[in-house]
Design a protein around this nucleic acid. Structure first.
Lengths: 220, 220
DNA sequence: TTCGGCGGATTGTCAGACAAGTGTACCGAA
DNA sequence: TTCGGTACACTTGTCTGACAATCCGCCGAA
């Protein structure tokens, strides 16, 4: 766990560095789901002592990116349809709650508008590059609440969302134009102060994404 | 991190045992807020090696019960009004989302009804014993969603709620009869399928509790 | 075929050590 | 007296090395 001051200066300990490296490799799909990560292997790969490797692995386990049973190697979590559903329903709960609050004051986060503009500027059709601004759009909704704890929670499920996406390697992505349109509708509802409608649109938006992911997963 | 199988058998490692002990002592108010917890002290108190004590402390830091800056002792988090507000707003988001979902199918969790019956059976007036069934009532709402991730998140904020309550040592508690009545109203709205009303009642319920906590805190 | 035992692999826990950083108390100078 | 700098104690970060406990797969025997 790194504190704010050190984070700003970019100063991190060995374990945090290893954790960040592993996280990036897992989320990018470099380390495939189900692959075993032994403490010894991590220790050797990054040239750190085993206790440090152990600590890094434990952080990722706490983050839900790895699973481990006693005396067994840690493995990258396998994403099954049940997991996808749970992840998406959980994020939907947080995001729709956020929308209702924002609608109460008709507050449209500027960061969300900006992120959606990026999506809209892309060529129509499925494109892996839409993933990043898409996630930024949704994150902006949560960040607008300015709640440390809600933000922490959301980010933890978002890691799993990224993992889901790495799992299906960008196949069957949604059309950029469709995504942008749905986002715009949501923001319109917020601007109109209609929290109920915004929440419903969001639920539909996420439900369709969830469905695509589940069906892409079933194709394996 | 203990797996399910071991948890059922009550088999836990040293670090988990220490973590549980410390957590209990912190949440019960035995270790006052702001108190320093050095690795050496924990190690000596429970007769474990320093790495084990370190791991236990790190788990509690990840849980948000302790805070630590590099090369400084870990300390029990100080609860200020801002923290209370953030904790209560975060739990309100999760719980109201749960109520809307339950109302959609007019599902009233049996565990919630049971917990509220316990509160109702107590003598009227403030009573520290109401805290436990009260928390069980709210937890029952989340558990009814049957979502692993949402449950995990909720439990993590609930730990902080307990910490808040330990901080004010049960002063200025709400009247048991009032609490039970508000809970009953919420469940009625759910049974009627009126998610909007249930969410509003819950928000008011939690907002008043939050207010009491903040004002009790300010009295120090 | 099924059961029990054996060995390799991996983690859990410990002891001990050194480096590095933080806060504080002390002391000298203005 | 007050301010500034320095030395020290305390604590954490990390490493090395080690042993016990446990789990897995494999093999042989009934």
């Amino acid at each position: 766990m790194t504190n704010t001051v050190d984070a700003v200066l970019g100063v991190v300990g060995v374990v945090d560095a290893v954790t960040a490296q592993l996280r990036a490799r897992i989320l990018s799909g470099d380390i495939r789901s189900g692959a075993a990560l032994t403490e010894a292997a991590v220790s050797q790969t990054y040239g750190v002592a085993r206790p440090s490797a152990k600590a890094a692995i434990e952080q990722l386990v706490a983050n839900g990116l790895l699973v481990r049973t006693a005396h067994r190697s840690a493995r990258v979590v396998g994403i099954d349809p049940g997991t996808v559903r749970d992840v998406y329903r959980t994020r939907a709960r947080l995001e729709s709650a956020a929308l209702r609050e924002l609608a109460r004051t008709a507050t449209v986060p500027a960061a969300a508008t900006a992120a959606n503009a990026e999506i809209l500027a892309m060529p129509a059709g499925p494109d892996p590059a839409t993933v990043d601004p898409d996630l930024r759009f949704h994150t902006a909704l949560i960040d607008a609440l300015d709640s440390e704890r809600t933000g922490r929670m959301y980010r933890s499920v978002l890691d799993e969302v990224r993992l889901c996406m790495a799992q299906v390697q960008g196949r069957r992505l949604l059309d950029a134009a469709v995504i942008a349109a749905q986002h715009a509708d949501i923001l319109d509802a917020v601007a109109a102060g209609d929290g109920q409608r915004a929440a419903e649109l969001l639920d539909a938006h996420l439900a369709s994404a969830e469905e695509r992911l589940v069906e892409a997963l079933g194709a394996d």
